[in-house]
């Protein structure tokens, strides 16, 4: 009973290809439901369990259009990984999902200027608007 592929794929304005998203979230259940919702809304979605896996996936290519990444100041090295990904792939859009928006804003904006911050709990319709805006 999957509602996948009901919506037409969301296409990137520039390439005309479906918009691809790499979701990075350590909570598998949450990641799964987010992926389901995004796929229903026409995105091509992959999942990585943490920042390191996300970095490896991006390096391996092909580069996704958007990285939707759960960040927490409690996880060491995450900001540095983000900085490297942004430095090597400046065209990759970054959407950071966090429970600490103020801290995340301060750290992430330093590491990856231009990234967008979404505060948990995610207002899904708000996230959709944001994803459409950044593509």
């Amino acid at each position: 009973m999957t509602p996948c592929a009901i919506h037409p794929p969301v296409q990137a304005a520039v390439t005309g290809r479906p918009v691809s998203i790499l979701v990075v979230d350590g909570a598998p259940k949450t990641a799964t439901v987010l992926v389901k919702l995004l796929r229903v809304d026409g995105f091509v979605v992959e999942v990585a369990a943490d920042a390191a896996a996300a970095e490896a996936r991006v390096e391996r290519g092909p580069q996704p259009d958007i990285l939707v990444m759960d960040v927490s100041p409690a996880r060491a090295g995450e900001v540095e990984t983000l900085r490297r990904i942004h430095a090597r792939h400046p065209t990759l859009r970054l959407v950071l999902v966090t429970a600490h928006p103020q801290v995340a804003e301060r750290l992430a904006l330093g590491a990856a200027p231009g990234c967008r911050i979404v505060t948990k709990p995610i207002d899904y319709s708000g996230l959709l608007r944001l994803l459409e805006a950044v593509t």
């Binding site: 009973m1 509602p3 009901i6 909570a27 259940k29 949450t30 439901v33 987010l34 389901k36 919702l37 229903v40 927490s72 409690a74 999902v97 429970a99 600490h100 505060t119 948990k120 709990p121 995610i122 207002d123 899904y124």
Partner: peptide, 29 residues
């Protein structure tokens, strides 16, 4: 509060996304 926020927002996030999914599924079915 900052510590609690983390503890509350994370489960809320899971709950909210699941409820969103549930809501959509119910509407479609």
């Amino acid at each position: 509060a900052a510590g609690l926020a983390h503890e509350i927002r994370n489960p809320l996030n899971g709950a909210q996304l699941h409820v969103t999914y549930l809501d959509r599924s119910l509407k479609k079915s």
